[in-house]
Structure formats: structure tokens, C-alpha cells
Design a binder for these strands. Structure first.
Length: 386
RNA sequence: GGGUCGGUGGCAGAGCGGUCAAUUGCAUCAGACUGUAAAUCUGACGACAUUAGUCUACGGCGGUUCAAAUCCGUCCCGGCCCA
């Protein structure tokens, strides 16, 4: 039972076809890569982060640069995340780092200790100053293991803040004289943890907000982690949440995910994805290898719904991973993936990459990240062509 | 030749009577990573059994002591200083 779909969205910086994956260029770069590395891997859009760029280099610099596209010299579609996830995660992990009230979030910079305040309005203003193509509401993302009561409160706050975001959004559109061709797309975020009824409530609330303010959300994001407190993929919740989101709106699965999670979400009707996995795991020496025997065998792929360990690394899966630091690659002179034409696989052997990781040279991390991005890009292309 | 300091597990380097199979770092082996406080983090790392436990180990040999990597004697080896 697939609900997948193909959409085309036209942003001021270019056209995107769904489904698409965005690597996280949190601080205006994908770590260790330059823009060409990303482009060559076949990836176009990227995600930058409001919170991180606000702290460094700071908005004065970004504004003087003429926006984040110019600042990082990347003129393809960019989405900015609101910073809600970062600020809340900071405070949830260490309550001394800040204070959350219904009006605002006060927090300390983990690096400088300096005190900052972010409100929903301010997050939106910053995102307009970034000048990106897609922006996200400042939400309240509770950890999945919070009580239902606490998550319910987070849902209500997320809805109230979404309203403030959308009102501010309209103000900024007016103030900056933007039109439908030049305005950024705006996404609200759906919270509700592992509870279908709360997810439903959140979406109903968000739709009500859009009616009250008089502007539709361009899309809805899936908030909080999409794996439950035990690490299991939240199949039911993701499926239900996708079905609650209006058909015409984009569905953005924030933070999703590993390859099988992306495929599953796609089949449920999610359109957009971003995740640190390909780049972070690449930097940590884990490489994705497509299973050679076929195209991504998605149509006949059996998802073992319930188990945490999906066993997708077995022969049945469409991919496997290798830890290139492992000793067994020390004298392995094959390419990482003989069917891959990325910079790494075209030019270097597993033994060489193993060596680069053993000596800790950044080149290894860069090549591995490029390879993994290419793997993701190819996956998305196959999904687009389904 | 005289004096002096030292020889500890793959390496570096703690420990200086019992709680030491021995702190720590590196190296090694494996694992984790999901809107990036992540070039990060976790675990293993004498042998065999692998729950318990048993053995062999802090240069060699011999002592003191209920007990020694730790104290004493001696031998071997190395650094530095003086002749």
C-alpha cells in the first residue's frame, strides 16, 4: 500500500522534484565538503540552521554578505531549519543551559556562554534575513520518552507558536515586498510523539491556524525523532501523520533518515528528507554500498515492520554498509563500490581509504562523505523515477 | 675506573609494602551514529576458562615480610656527570 507521489516545486533558486534529500549544511557547509563536492554527488538542495548561523557568524555578517546563498556562494535551493530542535535539545540535555517559557526561549551559547533569546517571531525574521528558499516554524520538540501530558503541552505550544510564526511570516512578506515567486516556502511542524491522536490534534490545530491567519502552509514537517524511545521506526505514526496532512501540501520528514527509513517514508507519501547520516557516518568511516544484483528493489522489498534490527544488512537488503577502518580492508585493493562512479570509487581502493582513516587525514572523511551523498542521491533518483 | 639516576604490559609513562593483572595516553580490535554541541562517542585490550575462577607477569637471581612492581643484597643492561 504505497501512497508515494511526485511533485515539482519551484523555488526562487530553482526547481526541485520530489522526493528529494537535503544534506545538513548546518553551519553553511556540509562538513568537510565544498559546494562542488555536493553538486558532483548529484545533490542539489541543502539545509542550513538558524540557530547555528545566528550564533556564528551572526546575522550582521550574513546580512552584509547579502544572505546565506551569497555568503556560502551556493545558489541552489536552501532550506533553513528554525533552530527549535537545537535550542530544545540543548536545554533538555542540560537544564542549566536555558529556560523555556511560553513566550520565548532563553539560552546560553554552549561555546561563548553568552545569553540569547529566541522567539517564534525572531526565528522567522532570522530566516528571512538568511534569504533561504524554504523556512520552518519555531516549534517545541519534546523527546519521545516524555509523558503524554508533556507531549500534549508541547503540541499546544507548537500550534500557538506556529500562529505567531505565520503572522510574522505575512509581515515579513509585506515588509520585504515579496510575491509568490520570491517568497520562501513555509513549513509548520507536527509534534505529538508516539501518539496518533496528538499528531492528529497538532495537524488540525495547524490547519486552523492557517485558516485564522489567512495563509496556507506550503508544507508540514514531521517533528521529533521518527524512532521511538526504543529505537524502533515509528511506522504507524509516520503513516498516520502523512495521511492527516492535506494532499496538496508538502510533507517534510525532518531528520529522516537511514536509507530504509527514507524508502518507507516515501511510500507513505513523505516528499522531503534531511539527515546527517550520510555525511556523519561517512566521516566516521561507514560507507553505504548499493547491492549490485538489481536496481533498488523497492517494489518487492519486504519491510520487517516490527523489529528494531531490520536485518536490512542481510542479502535481502538493497544496500549494505562497511566500516572502512576495519582491519580486513587494509589490503583490499578493490574500490569501495565497483558500481559507483564517485570521486572515491573511481580513483581509490578500500586499502587506500582504510589508510586515510588510520592516519586520520581529513581527505578520508571527505571522500567517504562524498560517496555516501552519491549513494543517497542515486537512491532519491530511483525513487523519483518509480 | 668513580659517582649518580633508572630498567613496568605493543609503545610512552604512572604506581614505590597489602584495596595491582597494575592509573593514564597512544596504538590495536570491534561497535554506535537519524530536523549535527559528533574529524565524535562506547566497549574490549596478559593467557586460559570467559558467570565464577585459575595461572604467568613490573630486567635476572636470591633475601626480608603473614604479604613485594614497591624494601634489602647481588648480577646484567641503559642514561647522565666526574676522571
Amino acid at each position: 500500500m504505497s501512497n508515494f507521489r511526485h511533485k515539482k516545486i519551484v523555488t526562487k533558486s530553482g526547481v526541485l522534484k520530489t522526493p528529494f534529500f537535503m544534506p545538513d549544511a548546518t553551519r553553511a557547509l556540509v562538513k568537510f565538503l565544498n559546494n562542488d563536492d555536493v553538486k558532483k554527488s548529484g545533490i542539489v538542495p541543502m539545509v542550513v540552521n538558524t540557530y547555528h548561523l545566528f550564533l556564528q557568524p551572526g546575522m550582521e555578517t550574513i546580512k552584509k554578505a547579502g544572505g546565506v546563498h551569497k555568503f556560502m556562494n551556493y545558489h541552489k535551493p536552501l532550506l533553513s531549519d528554525s533552530g527549535g530542535y537545537q535550542v530544545f535539545s540543548l536545554i533538555h540535555k542540560n537544564p542549566n543551559m536555558g529556560k523555556i517559557t511560553d513566550n520565548e526561549v532563553i539560552f546560553r551559547s554552549p561555546t561563548s556562554g553568552e545569553k540569547h533569546i529566541i522567539t517564534p517571531e525572531k526565528s522567522i525574521q532570522i530566516q528571512f534575513d538568511l534569504g533561504v528558499d524554504m523556512i520552518v516554524c519555531f516549534d517545541d520538540p519534546p523527546p519521545n520518552n516524555y509523558s503524554k501530558e508533556k507531549i500534549s503541552k508541547a503540541v499546544e505550544r507548537t500550534i500557538r507558536w506556529a500562529k505567531r510564526c505565520l503572522i510574522e511570516y505575512n509581515k515579513q512578506i509585506k515588509k520585504r515586498k515579496l510575491d509568490d515567486k520570491t517568497r520562501p516556502f513555509i513549513f509548520s511542524v507536527v509534534q505529538g510523539g508516539e501518539y496518533v491522536d496528538l499528531r492528529k490534534r497538532c495537524i488540525d490545530g495547524l490547519i486552523e491556524v492557517s485558516n485564522e491567519v489567512g495563509r496556507d502552509w506550503d508544507g508540514y514537517g514531521f517533528g521529533a525523532r521518527h524512532v521511538d524511545s526504543e529505537g524502533k521506526f515509528m511506522e504507524k505514526i509516520l503513516r498516520a501523520t502523512a495521511s492527516f496532512i492535506p494532499e496538496k501540501s508538502l510533507r517534510f520528514a525532518l531528520g529522516v533518515g537511514n536509507p530504509e527509513d527514507i524508502v518507507r517514508c516515501y511510500q507513505m507519501g513523505w516528499d522531503m528528507f534531511d539527515c546527517v547520516i550520510p555525511t556523519r557516518e561517512g566521516r566516521h568511516g561507514r560507507l553505504f554500498i548499493r547491492n549490485k544484483q538489481s536496481k533498488f528493489p523497492i517494489s518487492n522489498f519486504q519491510f520487517p515492520n516490527k523489529s528494531k534490527n531490520l536485518n536490512l544488512k542481510s542479502k535481502k537488503s538493497f544496500y549494505e554498509t562497511v566500516s572502512i577502518r576495519n582491519n580486513k580492508f587494509k589490503n583490499d585493493f578493490k574500490p569501495v563500490d565497483k558500481n559507483c562512479d564517485c570521486e572515491l570509487c573511481k580513483n581509490h581502493t578500500r586499502a587506500y581509504l582504510n589508510h586515510l582513516f588510520r592516519i586520520g587525514d581529513p581527505l578520508g572523511m571527505r571522500l567517504a562523505a562524498i560517496h555516501n551523498l552519491k549513494f543517497y542521491a542515486k537512491l532519491m533518483k530511483e525513487l523519483q523515477e518509480m
